[in-house]
Structure formats: C-alpha cells, structure tokens
Amino acid sequence: MRDARNIHEVSQLGIDWIGLDFIPNSERYVSQIASCAGIIPDYSSLSDLSSDKLSQQKKGPVLCGVFADDMPQNIVTRVVNFDLDVVQLNGEESMVMIDNLRRTLDPDIHAGIKIMKRIVITKREDIEKYKEYAEEVDYFLFDIQENLKDWSILEAYDGKVPFLVSGNIGAEDIENIKTLSHPLFYGISVNEKFESAPAVKDIALLKDFLEKIK
C-alpha cells in the first residue's frame, strides 16, 4: 500500500499486516521525501498521517517492507524511516546477505526485526527451495503462480518456519484458504484483486472478503 488515508481505512478492518513496496520498478513503489539533512537522507512519504501516523499504529497492523536484491543500506534506511516490523525479500538474496542484514538491524536499529523470504512456486518441486533459507528467516511467503494454482502442494512443506501464501489471491480462493490445515500456515497475502488502483485497496471488497474467510 502507499496512500496514507487508505492505509488508515484498511487498518480498521482488523487486518494483521500492511505491505509497503520498496522495489523501484514497481507501480506500487513507496517513495521517500528528501530531507536535505545530510544524515539519514529521506523521510517517510507516509508521515502526513498527522494524528494517525504509522508510528502510533503499532498496536494495529504489522508493517512489512518489500524489497528485491536491494542494497542493505537502503533496506536499513527504510526500516528506520518507516518503522518497519518485517523485511520481505523477493529477490535472489544470499544467506550471507540475510545474516548480515539481521545483524545490522537487530538489536541496535530494530530489536526483534523479522525477515521473510519469498519463494516462487511454479511446480511442486519448488517447495523444496525453502531448505536453503530455513536457518536464516522467520517466515516464508510461498507465491503460487497462476500456471499451478494447486494449494495441495503446501502440504508437502515439512519445515519449521511459519509460512504465508500469495499468488494473486481472490474471492475464488476462499475454499482453498478455509481447507488449508497445515500447522505452520500463518496467513495470506492479498494484492491486485482487491485494488481499485495500484496500491489502493477497495475497502468494501476487502471487508466482504475478510468476513467470508473468518
């Protein structure tokens, strides 16, 4: 998400996490505002929430920043400026990079920061890719691609790290969500099918969906 008012409205629906996209070529990219201060160079572009500032919403949704093959210093800056709780890595990040990122952030910059690694699932064998990162991350995001759309493959996951599921999820996936019984299934990530415009969630559509899956 990107619009401050829309974020506030969605947070009232009882959702658990809000994603902020920091991948530069994304149409949902969340920009920063130059401070010209020469220290930490940018401010959060969402700081105009006034009394509803994200820093005051910590009793509400977790803030998850989405990155892909970004430089660690860029990730650290955004963790500070946007007060992120989770760093989601969508690229080809190595285990060494992830370990260094965590050591940089925790505890000096953000104690207890969580890291989530996205695994793209195009075939059943892809579920095994989690093993490369199992010792380095706090969550996996299994992104089931359109060519597969077979949630039963998630039952093959035998790791110990909780996972979320994404993959252009819509109302047609409600039954899949309700029937997924894996003990480490942590949640779902919804995106395009609940937008009225890029990075803007349709409140009524999202509310109806949430009511149906609960």
Rank of each mutant, 00 (worst) to 15 (best):
P61S: 13
K193M: 10
L49C: 06
E128M: 12
Q145S: 12
V190N: 02
V87T: 03
K114S: 13
S55L: 07
D48N: 14
I213A: 08
N6D: 09
N74M: 06
Y43M: 08
Q73S: 11
N25P: 11
S44L: 05
V10W: 04
I203R: 04
I39Y: 11
D69F: 03
Y133A: 09
K212H: 02
E195M: 10
L46Y: 00
Q56K: 10
E128W: 00
T104M: 12
L154S: 07
E132V: 15
W17Q: 09
F22I: 09
D3W: 07
G38Y: 12
K160L: 08
K214D: 08
Q32H: 10
F185M: 07
I213Y: 10
D208G: 06
I174C: 10
N191F: 03
E211K: 13
Y43P: 01
I203L: 14
R102T: 01
A111C: 06
E136S: 14
E125G: 05
V79C: 07
S11W: 07
S35C: 06
D48L: 13
A199T: 05
I153Q: 00
G91W: 07
C36D: 10
V137H: 05
K53G: 14
S44A: 12
L63I: 09
K178D: 02
K201A: 10
R124P: 00
E155A: 14
A199R: 03
A37Q: 12
I40D: 09
R28Y: 07
V79G: 03
L105G: 04
M116A: 15
S94P: 07
S31M: 03
W17P: 00
E135R: 12
L164R: 00
W17C: 08
L206Q: 10
D150T: 00
A171E: 14
G170A: 14
I113R: 01
R78M: 08
P183N: 04
I15H: 06
R5S: 10
